[in-house]
């Protein structure tokens, strides 16, 4: 039986189709989940895709957090369901308090859209076990509110416990504290990342195939490989 990875569509989601495609290219079965339906359809993992859920009204992710599907995902994530939030999905995970900190307006105020080098810092999560720690990867970044902020104590704790999953290298596109591009929760099943691995899975459209590792990681993880 193939591994079922749910991809949520909110009103205003943009990258749900690309995320579902990346799941399929990695060898999984993509299951589309709808924001208004709390059923998770027995998926083994969930991707919250990028975009502008609910128009980004109030704050990015603030309204999506209370969508019926998110209530179910929040409960399941606390019980260990692997969840990946990409870009707007990362913002939603922070708003839902599944991840610490918040994503704020880019320091320079510009929407930044470019190919970005990252260094994978932690290969021990459900979503990064196909990489090696220290590996540099090239994936697109595209955000207006991607500046990661948290208080010093939280930042120190993230660093000390290996929960900074990826960092921007060769330039920080949005002013994120400590160049943070991705973090995870304590258990390592919930990961939020600002850049877009789902846009780097095919030579035709991506700058590399480096993003595919995120999606093969979750399949490996669910197949029982050590996380």
């Amino acid at each position: 039986m193939s591994t079922r990875v749910g991809v949520v569509t909110f009103p205003g989601s943009l990258d749900d189709t690309d995320a579902a495609r990346a799941v399929r290219l990695a060898g999984g079965e993509a299951v589309r989940l709808w924001h208004g339906n709390p059923s998770l359809h027995d998926v083994d993992a969930v991707v919250l895709p990028g975009g502008f859920s609910y128009g980004d009204y109030l704050r990015c992710g603030a309204i999506a957090r209370f969508a019926p599907v998110m209530q179910a995902i929040t409960d399941a994530a606390q019980d260990g369901l692997p969840v990946l939030g990409i870009c707007n999905g990362f913002q939603i995970l922070c708003e839902a308090h599944l991840l610490p900190g918040a994503l704020t307006r880019n320091q320079h105020l510009h929407f930044r859209n470019r190919d970005q080098w990252l260094r994978i810092e932690t290969a021990g999560t459900a979503w990064t076990n196909s990489y090696t720690a220290g590996q540099e990867v090239l994936v697109p970044v595209k955000n207006g509110e991607g500046c990661y902020v948290a208080d010093q104590r939280t930042l120190d704790e993230l660093e000390a416990t290996g929960r900074v999953v990826a960092r921007y290298v060769r330039g920080n596109p949005n002013g994120s504290q400590r160049d943070i591009a991705a973090i995870c929760n304590e258990a390592g099943n919930v990961v939020g990342m600002m850049p877009h691995p789902e846009h780097a899975v095919e030579a035709l459209t991506g700058p590399s195939l480096d993003g595919l590792g995120i999606f093969t990681s979750i399949l490996k993880h669910l197949a029982g490989a050590p996380a």
Partner: peptide, 8 residues
């Protein structure tokens, strides 16, 4: 709950 994010 909604209007403000206590983190920021």
């Amino acid at each position: 709950k909604l209007l403000a994010n206590p983190v920021i």
